[in-house]
Every structure is written in C-alpha cells, then in structure tokens.
C-alpha cells in the first residue's frame, strides 16, 4: 500500500506536483496520504485530497493539526478525514 507524503507547504504548486503521483498510485489499493508534516494548505490541495477520497478505492489521510484546522474552517473535516465514509 503506497504512502504518499505531503510537504509542509501545500500550495497550488504542491498540488500540481502531487497530482501525477496520486494518479499513478491509483489502482494499487486505497491510498495512504501522510499529511502529518503539513503546516499550510490551500484550496488546490484540499481539492486534490477530496478528489483522491472519491477516486478508486479512496484514500486515508493522516492530517496534521494545521490541516485539520483548515479543513474544519472550510467545513471539510468529515469529507476528508472520516474513516467510515471513505
């Protein structure tokens, strides 16, 4: 099961860089996304994460406090991290 690590700064450039990696990792079981080092996150990355949750067998995201905080602000805590939904 591949584990994909997110950088500290998850801006649009990071999302662009991450997308091919995620696309390549699809099909080899549920994705594991380690976002425990993430300090900053933007809308582009949130969208990539949401999309990953919906694609194929879904994705498990391990959030950092900062990511969790941002997700809560954006009303996406459940959609991103809820394990029962995935």
């Amino acid at each position: 099961m591949p584990i994909i690590h997110l950088p500290a700064r998850c801006d649009r450039a990071a999302a662009q860089a991450l997308l091919p990696e995620l696309q390549a990792a699809l099909g080899s079981g549920p994705l594991q996304i380690d976002a425990s080092a993430t300090e900053q996150v933007g809308q582009a990355m949130l969208q990539v994460l949401l999309s990953a949750r919906r694609t194929g067998e879904g994705a498990q995201i391990t959030p950092s406090p900062a990511l969790r905080h941002t997700a809560r602000q954006a009303g996406l805590e459940v959609a991103l991290f809820d394990r029962s939904e995935a």
């Binding site: 696309q23 969208q47 949401l50 919906r54 602000q73 009303g75």
Partner: peptide
C-alpha cells in the same frame, strides 16, 4: 461558521485540474 461546503463539483483524480476551483461554501 462554515455551514456547508459544496464538493459536488470535485471530479475524480483523473479529471482533476489543480488550477481549477471546484468548491463552494
């Protein structure tokens, strides 16, 4: 407080364009 985030427009990874905005709040 965020009431709802509309994620219905977010496509699958294969169709995702990281430069587009898909969310509404």
């Amino acid at each position: 407080v965020c009431l709802q985030c509309d994620t219905s427009a977010v496509p699958g990874l294969d169709d995702l364009d990281p430069d587009q905005a898909y969310l509404g709040w």
